[in-house]
Amino acid sequence: TCPLCKTELNIGSKDPPNFNTCTECKNQVCNLCGFNPTPHLTEIQEWLCLNCQTQRA
């Protein structure tokens, strides 16, 4: 489950994953609780959960 919103993560499912791993804290959170803060920078593959995003802001 997502630590932030308690959504079930579909780990091991044949569906596309509905979660990602935060590059900062390494927690697995669902796609609604994390995002790529710099989608225009292709050389930085970063994906932050809302916790890390808030701490950085």
Rank of each mutant, 00 (worst) to 15 (best):
K26L: 14
C49N: 02
T21N: 14
L4N: 12
N18D: 11
N27K: 10
F19H: 10
C52Q: 01
T21K: 15
K14L: 02
F35N: 13
C22Y: 00
L32H: 13
D15Y: 14
C5N: 01
G12T: 12
N51P: 04
T54A: 12
Q53Y: 05
V29A: 09
C52A: 00
E8C: 02
L48D: 04
N51Q: 08
S13T: 10
L50H: 14
T21L: 08
Q45M: 10
K6N: 13
C52W: 00
P37L: 10
C22A: 02
P39W: 04
C33V: 01
L41T: 14
Q45S: 10
C25M: 01
T42M: 05
C5M: 00
C25D: 01
C30P: 01
C22L: 01
F19E: 06
T21G: 09
P16N: 05
C49H: 01
T42R: 13
Q53M: 03
P37K: 09
L9R: 06
W47F: 09
K6F: 10
P39H: 03
G34A: 08
L41M: 06
H40T: 15
T23V: 13
C49R: 01
L4M: 13
N20C: 08
L48F: 13
C2M: 00
N10K: 15
H40C: 12
N20E: 11
N51R: 06
Q28Y: 06
E24D: 11
C33A: 02
I44N: 07
N31H: 14
K26W: 10
F19C: 04
Q45T: 06
Q28R: 11
C25K: 01
E8G: 09
I11H: 13
K14G: 12
C52K: 01
L32R: 15
E46H: 06
K6M: 04
T21S: 13
L50V: 14
I44Y: 04
C5P: 00
T42V: 13
C49L: 00
V29G: 06
N18V: 04
N10Y: 03
P37W: 11
Q45R: 11
E46D: 03
E8H: 03
C49Y: 00
L4D: 15
Q45E: 03
L50M: 02
K26C: 10
N10E: 10
P3H: 11
T1A: 02
P3W: 00
C52R: 01
G34Q: 09
N18A: 06
N51G: 08
K14R: 12
Q28H: 05
L9M: 14
E46S: 07
T42N: 14
N10M: 12
L9G: 10
P16G: 03
E43S: 06
Q53T: 09
H40Q: 09
C52D: 01
N51A: 10
C30V: 02
P39Q: 14
K26H: 05
N10D: 05
L9D: 07
D15S: 09
I11S: 10
L50D: 15
E46N: 05
N27I: 11
S13H: 09
P16I: 06
P3C: 14
F19S: 04
C5H: 07
T54G: 12
L41I: 15
C22E: 02
I11N: 12
P17R: 08
L48S: 09
C25N: 02
E46K: 09
Q45Y: 12
N51F: 04
N18G: 08
P16E: 06
T7I: 04
N10I: 09
H40N: 15
T54L: 02
F19W: 09
C30I: 00
C30D: 03
E8I: 07
F19N: 12
P17N: 06
E8M: 11
C49D: 02
P17I: 03
C2W: 00
E8K: 04
N18R: 09
N18Y: 08
Q45G: 12
Q53L: 03
E43Y: 03
I44D: 03
I11A: 06
L41R: 15
T23N: 04
S13A: 03
C33I: 00
T42C: 13
C2E: 02
K14T: 11
T42F: 02
T23Q: 03
N18T: 08
F35Y: 12
C25A: 01
C49F: 01
N10C: 04
N18I: 03
C2G: 00
P16F: 12
T1L: 09
P3R: 06
E46F: 03
W47D: 11
E46G: 10
K14N: 10
I44K: 15
L41G: 13
N18S: 07
C33W: 00
Q28W: 07
E43T: 08
T21F: 08
E24P: 02
F19M: 15
C33D: 04
C33S: 02
P3E: 04
G34K: 01
L50G: 13
I11V: 10
N20M: 15
N31V: 12
E24F: 04
N31Q: 11
T54E: 15
K14F: 03
I11F: 09
P16M: 08
T1C: 12
E46A: 06
W47Y: 03
N18C: 05
N20H: 08
E24V: 11
N27A: 14
K26Q: 12
L9K: 12
Q45C: 06
C33P: 01
N31M: 07
N18Q: 09
H40V: 12
L32C: 10
T7W: 01
T38G: 15
S13Q: 14
T7S: 08
C22S: 02
S13Y: 05
T7F: 04
E24M: 09
G12L: 10
T54D: 12
N27P: 04
P17L: 08
K14A: 09
V29Q: 05
T54S: 11
C5F: 00
L9N: 06
K26S: 14
T42D: 10
Q28D: 03
C33H: 13
L50E: 15
N20R: 13
T54P: 14
S13I: 05
P17F: 05
N10P: 11
N20G: 13
I44M: 05
S13P: 09
V29D: 04
N51S: 05
C52S: 01
Q28L: 09
N31C: 13
K6P: 14
I44L: 13
P39A: 11
C49I: 00
N51M: 02
K26M: 15
Q53A: 05
E43W: 08
D15G: 07
N10H: 02
N27W: 15
C5G: 01
Q28E: 06
G34T: 00
C30Y: 00
N51W: 04
L50C: 10
W47S: 10
G12A: 03
V29K: 04
K26F: 10
F35Q: 15
K14I: 02
N10L: 05
T23P: 07
W47G: 13
K14M: 07
F35T: 15
Q53D: 14
N36C: 09
C52E: 03
L9T: 09
N20W: 06
T54F: 01
I44C: 12
I44F: 14
N27C: 15
C49K: 00
T21A: 11
K26D: 13
C52F: 00
T42W: 06
C33E: 04
P3N: 07
P16T: 03
Q45K: 15
N51E: 08
I11D: 10
C52I: 00
E24A: 09
Q45I: 10
T21C: 12
N18E: 08
N36H: 15
L32Y: 05
K26R: 13
P17G: 08
P37V: 14
C33Y: 00
Q53E: 09
L50Y: 05
P17C: 02
I11T: 08
C5Y: 00
C30K: 02
C22W: 00
Q28T: 10
L4E: 04
C49W: 00
P16W: 02
